[in-house]
Design a binder for these strands. Structure first.
Lengths: 160, 160
DNA sequence: CTCCCAAAGTTCCGAAAAAGAACCTTGACT
DNA sequence: AGTCAAGGTTCTTTTTCGGAACTTTGGGAG
């Protein structure tokens, strides 16, 4: 299966992976959430090659995750900002941070803490059910085919 | 920056990406959550080459995300199952499903629905604050350095 | 006017990884 | 002895990546 076939799969994970399933893309998005916006800043912070960076930014813009905004004229220069579609990726990033904190933390503990503005406290992101508000974990979720289901594989996140 | 340098970064996103920041790895994990366990089944469902599949499974086992469990003797055969560390990736998969459903759904609507066993309803995963239970979104989270912070870049998931 | 600088890319080349297909191993079954 | 199944491994070819140099647009210094 090739990269460009992914987005046509009847699977939301596959479709999402077709957008962000690349290490550089995820790290670029992490930096976007940290308010990094310029080509050179991404390059310096990430240690990515300019070639790959340009490619990924182009891809993210064409997918509507980032937009290219001019920040000066003569010479015209652009910066990259998250669109609403891009901001919606926050839960993905939060989930990645949480897992890394739990399972990959170094000797010093977690590198970063998350503070919830609404209550002012340091917190962990917790996933709950939109219907009853109860906790969601690996053992209390079932998947079933939805209206967009097709042939082969369904979607996913059920227990082992 | 090379792949193997990622896991030493003082960033939980980077460390997590060093484990799952690869499209095949994420799709393999999706299938694991759907109770797929055997080499041939992964191969058939994913359309991945055997070479890459063997490599990714080996990597996931060595990282403690999957474990190799014998399911028959003579000839000895193994299957792959999520460990507790692997099951903890569920929020990541849920976040990917949710984003795909919202932003990449095809004409037919969502391919799969999630059902919460505790309340029996179809639901969306929602991220809330572990402290006050309030909603978490792109605009009410601040990041600050934690005990494991180091030199360069902090972590991540703040608004644009 | 010429040189130098900055930001944001693009181009080029050798190295690494993925796709695709064939081959190998263990043991059961016929 | 021949066939089948599961789970890999070994090729060869095609893509992608890393690293470094080059380009473009214009400002500012001498």
């Amino acid at each position: 299966m090739r990269w460009d076939e992914l987005e046509t799969e009847a699977c939301s994970v596959a479709r999402t992976v077709s957008v962000i399933g690349d290490r550089w893309t995820i790290l670029i998005l992490r930096d976007c959430f940290m308010r990094v916006r310029r080509f050179e800043d991404f390059e310096k912070r990430l240690g990515i090659t300019r070639h790959v960076l340009a490619d990924r930014l182009r891809k993210l813009v064409s997918l509507g995750v980032l937009r290219r905004v001019p920040y000066q004229e003569r010479p015209r220069r652009y910066e990259y900002r998250l669109t609403p579609k891009g901001l919606d990726l926050q839960p993905v990033l939060l989930a990645l941070v949480r897992w890394g904190d739990t399972h990959m933390a170094g000797q010093g503990g977690r590198p970063v803490l998350l503070e919830h503005r609404d209550c002012g406290q340091v917190f962990d992101p917790v996933v709950v059910c939109s219907h009853c508000g109860g906790p969601v974990d690996a053992h209390n979720v079932r998947t079933r085919p939805g209206p967009g289901a097709r042939a082969s594989h369904a979607d996913a996140a059920q227990a082992g």
